[in-house]
């Protein structure tokens, strides 16, 4: 069991007492979570339970209202302002890669340009070196041959694989996926999940919001169930799927079983 407190000496992501309000709406309620290195976590829950918000708080696309986020030793308190705070957020973002449901590739750049943009512009990496790294990652998602295409000439699955390569080329310590296959035609989901599995096997720490229970079962080390802004169950996949403890987990699993989601 990886999720026993104190078991792993060095969590990559450590969330403590996180609260998030949208106006009066209390979306995350005192959430705490530790993610040890190399662990793959699947975050599941019904729509509106706060999965995306939690994920987006980790790289500060949403500013937490209270609580702290720590990524690879960089600790940021939510709800602060000022230059120092912005610098910390920037540092955290360099340690996190994010993959969005809608891919969000830059349409005015080729695939290769998309992938080297971060390393060159943000990290100031030498262009040649960035291209080398980018081509390596494009190759590993199977899309090196598309490097000079513009995104509008790619299928949804290919776009998402490029998005993964783009995030990986920043050499993050943790990858965040927010429903990476939800915008895809069913026949394209597999290729993206396969790439994600490969990334997991290479030892990347991953937090994945997903409705793909097959992936959760097969790849996740831990499945966390969210409901109404709280983490209601956190366990190994077989436990979650075969012996759910919380009635809300059970209801959710049953919904997936009957095919409704």
């Amino acid at each position: 069991m990886d999720n026993k407190p104190g078991f792993s000496p060095m969590p990559i992501v450590k969330i403590e007492n996180l609260d998030k309000y949208f106006g009066h709406l209390h979306v995350l309620k005192n959430v705490s979570l530790e993610v040890p290195e190399r662990q793959v976590i699947c975050l599941i829950g019904r729509s509106g339970s706060g999965k995306s918000t939690l994920l987006r708080c980790i790289n500060f696309l949403e500013e937490p209202s209270h609580g702290t986020i720590e990524v690879d030793g960089i600790k940021v308190a939510g709800g602060e302002k000022g230059r120092e705070h912005r610098q910390l957020i920037h540092d955290v973002r360099l340690k996190t890669g994010m993959v969005f449901q809608e891919f969000n590739l830059f349409p005015h750049m080729t695939v290769l340009e998309n992938v080297i943009e971060g390393p060159v512009i943000v990290k100031g990496m030498d262009r040649k070196k960035a291209i080398e790294l980018a081509e390596q990652n494009l190759d590993s998602v199977g899309l090196l041959f598309k490097k000079d295409e513009y995104p509008n000439r790619l299928s949804g699955g290919q776009k998402q694989r490029v998005a993964i390569a783009r995030a990986l080329t920043m050499e993050p310590r943790v990858m965040l996926f927010d429903e990476p296959t939800s915008a895809l035609d069913p026949e394209l989901i597999g290729e993206v999940l396969n790439v994600m599995k490969k990334v997991a096997l290479e030892g990347m720490t991953m937090i994945v919001v997903t409705h793909e229970m097959g992936f959760a079962r097969e790849v996740a080390d831990r499945v966390i169930v969210m409901a109404e802004g709280e983490l209601v169950e956190d366990n190994k996949p077989e436990q979650i799927f075969n012996a759910p403890k919380d009635p809300r987990t059970e209801a959710l699993i049953n919904r997936y079983r009957t095919g409704a989601n």
């Binding site: 920037h90 973002r93 360099l94 969000n104 971060g118 990290k123």
Partner: peptide, 18 residues
């Protein structure tokens, strides 16, 4: 230009200006 474009840029560590 969609919000997603901005978020993708911020997520790879770009500043607002970049």
């Amino acid at each position: 230009v969609g919000k997603g474009q901005r978020e993708a840029a911020l997520a790879i560590g770009m500043t607002q200006g970049q």
